[in-house]
């Protein structure tokens, strides 16, 4: 069945690539429609392949890394499209489509070079949702901090940043929603894999800190929305904490016993 993947994947990749190109080049209404149509047909091609693969394998295609990559692409697109439609953020459709495209291309170009080993603790139905939801949260919060930096710059140039911060707030709320889901999915998974939903493992501690820092930001913003200067700095700082939780954790002396450090 994977033999036919090339056909479906190239169709998806080509259409998404075109859609991305259009969305970058032009901003006309007609182009917007074209982007939507292309991206949806690309998605349907991926969907068709997953359905055929499922029937062919006679089991849910969620076992190997290559199979999970299909789902990454699948969900990334759906979430990207829904958020785009709901909030009218074209950049988010482009962003998630780009990520989905990367995963399809990975499957196409390097189907077998990845390590196939997955330690038993990671072999769970929670693996995919936990990771995807976190990646989405990181995408939103990353964008919010970019807006934060832009606001810092604009403030420096004495431009109004009220609108920018309102946009950032919205994005933080959505990102925080996904961050909460990631945290809770992780807790539910931990209960199945390690016996307890929360053990203050270093990665958990830093995930909590990240969550709390954004929570602090949301409360500060809610209370005194006019104190924009303080809040922009906080927004930039919060992403720093997020990066510690994501990558920095591997270098912290307190984290060497973490169950999340996979060598």
């Amino acid at each position: 069945m994977w033999y036919y993947f090339e056909f479906f994947a190239l169709l998806s990749a080509g259409l998404w690539g075109l859609a991305l190109l259009f969305s970058l080049l032009m901003k006309k209404r007609l182009v917007k429609r074209l982007v939507e149509v292309f991206s949806i047909i690309g998605f349907l091609s991926l969907l068709a392949f997953i359905v055929l693969l499922w029937i062919n394998l006679q089991r849910p295609p969620m076992r190997t890394l290559g199979e999970t990559r299909l789902w990454y692409s699948f969900f990334l697109f759906i979430i990207g499209f829904v958020v785009y439609k709901r909030w009218n953020y074209p950049w988010f459709l482009s962003y998630s489509m780009f990520l989905a495209l990367v995963f399809v291309l990975l499957n196409l170009l390097k189907p077998e070079t990845h390590s196939k080993t997955l330690m038993p603790a990671l072999q769970s139905v929670w693996f995919v949702p936990h990771v995807i939801v976190y990646m989405i949260a990181y995408a939103f919060l990353g964008v919010s901090s970019l807006i934060g930096f832009k606001a810092l710059l604009d403030r420096h140039r004495n431009r109004s940043i009220t609108n920018l911060l309102q946009l950032a707030d919205n994005i933080v709320y959505i990102g925080f929603g996904f961050l909460t889901l990631g945290l809770i999915f992780g807790a539910l998974w931990a209960k199945e894999a390690w016996g307890h939903y929360w053990t203050w493992d270093p990665k958990e501690t830093w995930a909590f800190i990240t969550w709390a820092v954004y929570m602090l930001y949301m409360h500060l913003r809610y209370h005194k929305p006019h104190k924009t200067a303080q809040h922009t700095r906080w927004l930039a700082f919060a992403f720093l904490i997020l990066l510690i939780a994501w990558f920095g954790i591997n270098f912290l002396p307190a984290a060497q016993s973490s169950v999340h450090v996979y060598s």
Partner: peptide
């Protein structure tokens, strides 16, 4: 390993409320 946590269902009630709350945040924004 054997684990007994009689309070788990209560914790889960809280967690599931937060999951619903997270969806609320995602769809409502600020």
């Amino acid at each position: 390993e054997l684990v007994r946590d009689p309070w788990l269902p209560v914790v889960y009630v809280g967690l599931f409320m937060m999951i619903a709350g997270a969806f609320w945040l995602i769809f409502q924004g600020k």
